[in-house]
Amino acid sequence: MSDIQGNLLIADDNKVNRLLMSRSVELLGHKASVAENGKIALEMLAKEPFDVLLLDIEMPEMDGFQVLEAIKTDPALRDLPVIVTSSVEGLDNIVRCIELGAEDYIPKPVNKVLLKARLNSSLEKKRLHDEQKRLLNRFATEEVADDLQKSGFAIGGRRVHATILFCDIRDFTALSENMAPEAIIELLNTFYTLMFEAVSSHGGIVSLMVGDGLMAIFGAPQPIKSPEQSAVEAAKEMLDMVAVLNEERAAEGEPKLRLGFGIATGEVVAGYAGTDARATYTCIGKTVNRAARLEAHTKTSDCRILFDTETHDELIERDGVHRIADALFKGFSNSISVFAIK
């Protein structure tokens, strides 16, 4: 296993021990910072990311056991590798350290060869964990990634109140008919980049991308204040972004993109659907179906943003909102009231 350079924090109340340990890890190619007790160590961990904590047990104000307990209950720190370096003897103390989440236990005086091996092992595990986290954040939204880390993964869902947004590029098939495949992919990537930014900036998550359309959820997996207003504002921001994009496309002689949005609010079942091998965070229910039908209805209503009564009634800002003719959608026994922003 190759050596990995790391940013280490050494917590020890003995000044000589701090100096000797700092010298040892710096000779191994690592950066060393020091804390004279557990309380200061936690304060430093909250301000700066470290790769490994070398922790003494017997310290004033806050001992090593208390530090381990605090790290174990802190979502931001619980994956930090901790190597206990202590002169405290007894198997019970070692077991307690491991049970509290310590990666390893090295007795004092610390053997430098053993220290090097333990640091390399801990830094490699930290590197792999960071890589897994990076990949998770790449293929899942920040909210879903946080939900997975806090709650764990399990197939299934729970009932939540949320607002669903569907967005689609109108007449995309005709628009892309004479485009090269590479140009289509580039256009869609630009479109999705803009849409993701608008959705995430208003507290929503994109849970589904299909061709030239997407579905976004506001209010799950984490609740947000006024998901209805957030969804409408996200749709408005998308239109503003595409208007700028269309100016560039017009200058290049390319046709403008036209978007349609359907927004509905109500109870949905949200969670992870699929298998243990492959799953995605999504939601189902009549609210989802209603939002999809409203988005499709934009193609015949000549309105860009349509939403239901449940969304309308909770809006804080209603400038430009007007009611259009009620609509009866496929799969629904009764017609629904439809509101629009042209």
Rank of each mutant, 00 (worst) to 15 (best):
E61Y: 07
K108N: 10
I94T: 08
N111V: 04
Q66L: 03
A70Y: 02
E89D: 13
E89L: 10
D74L: 10
D79P: 01
G90P: 01
V84T: 04
I94R: 04
I71M: 00
Y105C: 04
G90N: 08
I106Q: 05
L80Q: 05
I94S: 05
I98E: 00
F65Y: 14
L80N: 03
R118L: 06
A70R: 12
V88I: 15
K112N: 05
F65H: 02
A76Q: 12
L68W: 01
E61P: 03
R118T: 05
I94F: 01
V67E: 00
L77V: 13
I83H: 03
Y105L: 05
I94E: 06
A70M: 11
A70Q: 14
Y105P: 09
E69H: 09
E58P: 03
D104P: 14
A117P: 07
P60V: 11
P109H: 11
I83R: 04
L114M: 14
M62Q: 14
D79R: 11
L77H: 12
L77R: 10
R78N: 15
L100Y: 00
E103K: 03
G90F: 11
R96L: 03
V88T: 13
R118W: 09
V95N: 03
I98W: 00
M62T: 09
V113T: 15
E103Y: 08
A117M: 11
Y105T: 11
Q66T: 13
V88A: 15
M59V: 14
E61M: 10
L80E: 06
E99P: 08
D104E: 14
